[in-house]
Amino acid sequence: MNTFQTINTAYLRASRTIETVLVSKEHLRKVFFIYNYEGNSFRVFENHLSLLHFLQNKGENDFHFSTEIEVDGFFSKVKLVA
């Protein structure tokens, strides 16, 4: 099972944040970005560029979840590659 921790939180507004999350398992690590919209919509991005495109209305999110529990489940099982 993977471990994950939030390493940064940027507040766009009081109810909208971008979290940087480090997911790791043994010697593998990957950073993900979560756009949290009012605690009702969590869009997960595999890289910073995808996040920027989404925020500029030029791209789609990589993954979308409705609850924090779903996001945690995703991070605990996401496949990390070298």
Rank of each mutant, 00 (worst) to 15 (best):
L12N: 09
E68N: 12
Y35F: 12
F33D: 00
V81A: 03
H48V: 11
N47S: 11
V81W: 05
H64V: 15
H27G: 09
F4W: 12
F65T: 02
T6N: 09
T9S: 12
V21L: 13
V23N: 00
V31P: 03
S76D: 10
N47F: 11
S24I: 02
S41D: 07
L52I: 15
A14H: 10
G39A: 07
L28V: 08
T6G: 00
N8W: 09
Q5W: 06
E68L: 15
M1N: 05
F33N: 02
N8D: 13
Q5V: 15
L51T: 06
Y37Q: 09
D72G: 06
K30D: 04
M1P: 00
F45C: 06
F32E: 01
F74D: 03
S15L: 14
A10Y: 08
N61F: 09
L80D: 05
F4L: 08
K30N: 08
H53S: 13
E26W: 12
N57S: 10
K77N: 11
A14M: 10
I69H: 04
F42C: 02
R16A: 05
F65P: 00
F33E: 01
Y35D: 02
F42M: 06
N57E: 11
Q56V: 12
N2T: 12
G59R: 02
H53A: 14
H27D: 15
V31D: 03
N2K: 11
E60C: 06
H27K: 14
I34G: 03
F32H: 03
I34C: 07
N47I: 12
M1I: 12
F63W: 07
E26F: 14
F74P: 01
F45L: 09
Y11Q: 10
F65W: 04
T17I: 05
N2G: 08
H64I: 14
D72C: 08
S41G: 05
K77Y: 02
G73D: 08
L12P: 02
K79R: 15
N61K: 13
K58T: 07
N2S: 09
N57I: 08
I34E: 05
S76I: 14
L52C: 08
K79S: 10
R13C: 02
N40L: 14
I18M: 03
S41Q: 10
E26H: 13
D62E: 00
L49F: 09
V81Y: 07
V23C: 04
V44N: 01
H53M: 13
E70H: 08
N40T: 14
N47M: 07
S15H: 10
H27L: 15
T20P: 00
N36S: 08
F4P: 00
I69P: 02
V31T: 14
R13K: 13
H27C: 12
F54C: 03
R43D: 03
H48M: 11
V21K: 04
D62L: 06
Y35H: 01
I34R: 05
S15N: 14
E38Y: 07
R29N: 13
G39C: 06
L55P: 01
I69Q: 03
E60R: 08
T17Q: 04
S66F: 03
V78A: 05
F65K: 04
I34N: 01
D72W: 07
R16Y: 09
V31W: 07
V44H: 04
F54Y: 10
T67D: 00
K25M: 02
V23M: 00
R16S: 06
K25G: 00
E46A: 13
E70R: 09
I7Q: 01
Y37E: 09
E60W: 02
